[in-house]
Design a protein around this nucleic acid. Structure first.
Length: 259
DNA sequence: ATGGTTGAAACTCAA
């Protein structure tokens, strides 16, 4: 079964693009980020018409995550513990029973964290630590767990066309990269990296300064697999061609194929 | 040093 993640950058502005991609790829599960709408603003109708169930954790204007699934989504959990005082909608998870078995699938949108040293940067690092705490508890269940999303972290130099360009950016700070490594080290497999260890695989190109035309890209959207899920990893990749479509998101979909 | 772009929502912010 195919599980994908896509930072859509505004579901209302991108619904036709999403439907086109769903028809083309027909993934079993899609983790979405930056839907930028409240729950009742999500265009569930046309998505359900394509055979998907929908779970949404929305927010007006900013952030917002969702899960689409051809299989029923059970035990949906919204938000990242501790929930008190955190108004930002950046995590949703649910149990999906598909051809590969029962998987807890999480759609995660890590904070951007710029500029470095700001309150936002501190929130980013704290959020990654909270996610690490949450996943540590989940991993103890020794069940299939897939955390897919926009991590807003460039893990290594080969994950950027021009790494030196990013040294003053929160996405590439030693602190952010260390936090991502600490999360991964709990036992996750970075699916795309496990399949292909070469450079030049990017998931995001800025709208500005001709980043796409210059292939000035970075790999910040990741699919992390628990050991039980990694055992079933067959293939992984990036739907790069979607960036050539009209009115594209600045991110492209990333996917895994599990047996 | 600045500008370059986009979405959502509102006369600006976040990315």
């Amino acid at each position: 079964m195919r599980i994908a993640t896509w930072n859509i950058n505004g579901i209302k502005a991108r619904i036709d693009t999403l439907l086109r991609w769903l028809r083309e790829v027909s993934p079993d599960v899609v983790c979405m980020q930056e839907i930028k709408c409240p729950d009742d603003g999500f265009p569930t109708g046309p998505i359900e018409e394509l055979g998907y169930n929908v779970a949404v954790h929305g927010q007006k204007g900013f952030n917002g995550v969702a899960i689409l699934s051809k299989h029923p989504i059970e035990d949906v959990r919204k938000g990242l513990p501790p929930l008190d005082g955190d108004q930002q909608a950046r995590l949703i998870s649910g149990l999906v029973a598909g051809p590969s078995g029962v998987i807890r699938v999480g759609s995660a949108y890590m904070p951007n964290g710029n500029p470095i040293g700001s309150e936002k940067f501190a929130y980013k690092l704290a959020w990654l630590e909270r996610l690490t705490d949450w996943t540590r508890a989940e991993l103890e269940k020794e069940e299939m767990l897939v955390i897919a999303g926009d991590y807003n972290v460039i893990p290594a130099p080969l994950d950027a066309k021009y790494p030196e360009f990013w040294v003053t950016d929160a996405l590439y700070t030693p602190e952010a990269r260390m936090a991502f490594r600490k999360l991964s080290a709990l036992g996750f497999t970075d699916a795309v990296r496990a399949i292909d260890d070469r450079g030049g695989i990017y998931t995001f190109w800025d709208y500005q300064a001709g980043a796409w035309q210059r292939n000035n890209g970075i790999r910040i959207d990741h699919i992390l697999l628990s050991p039980e899920a990694a055992d079933k990893l067959c293939q992984a990749g990036v739907d790069r061609h979607v960036r050539t479509w009209e009115k594209p998101s600045d991110h492209v979909p990333v996917w895994v194929e599990l047996s």
